[in-house]
């Protein structure tokens, strides 16, 4: 991007292209120019009419940009923002504390003591579900074999669960 050196003008000289690039990037005000380019640019300005014309052109846009109102930042506004930030700071007591691993394991085991009766009940329900499921394929298979009457047969089987559990064919299928 930068072309600070112009071979034709010597080691410290800046070419017009580099000067135009500088103006396009930083504007016409030398205080905004990078330190390492300010001196060569000012040297070019001192002897180049074209460089001064380019600077004048860039200064016109600068003047327009400077017409943007600056932010008004009063002491009150600063104080209000600081006070707001202070009010938003996390309260130390509410900060999440890191719990040691051993304590976390102990808590988990302690928790299981309260949970196991419920877990046993859940296991019992699961076992009952498995038993019911073991009988369902018999009814479904039979239904599948009867073609169009299958849906009716399945519905009947599912709604008559006690009889399905204790029919001889169901018991036989359990032990096959």
């Amino acid at each position: 991007m930068r072309e600070p050196i112009n071979g034709a003008g010597g080691k410290e000289a800046m070419g017009m292209a580099a000067f135009q690039a500088l103006l396009e990037q930083y504007g016409a005000e030398p205080r905004r120019w990078p330190d390492d380019l300010r001196k060569p640019a000012q040297a070019l300005l001192a002897h180049s009419v074209q460089a001064r014309a380019e600077q004048h052109r860039a200064a016109m846009l600068d003047a327009m940009l400077d017409r943007l109102d600056a932010p008004v930042i009063s002491d009150d506004r600063v104080a209000r923002v600081v006070a707001g930030a202070l009010g938003d700071l996390p309260v130390p007591g509410l900060v999440r504390r890191r719990i040691p691993f051993a304590q976390r394991v102990g808590d988990m085991l302690g928790g299981w003591r309260q949970v196991w009766p419920r877990a046993a009940g859940l296991a019992a329900c699961t076992a009952a579900g498995i038993l019911v499921g073991a009988f369902s394929p018999v009814a479904s298979t039979a239904a599948g074999g009867m073609g169009g009457e299958g849906a009716v047969t399945t519905a009947t089987t599912a709604s008559d669960l006690p009889s399905a559990l204790f029919t001889p064919s169901a018991l036989e299928s359990l032990f096959q």
């Binding site: 030398p30 205080r31 905004r32 990078p34 330190d35 600056a70 002491d75 600063v78």
Partner: peptide, 17 residues
């Protein structure tokens, strides 16, 4: 930093409390 006067805030009127 390569810019002269970069810490100047000519447009921002602030006094430190």
């Amino acid at each position: 930093s390569g810019m002269a006067g970069r810490d100047r805030h000519k447009d921002t009127q602030v006094t430190v409390t």
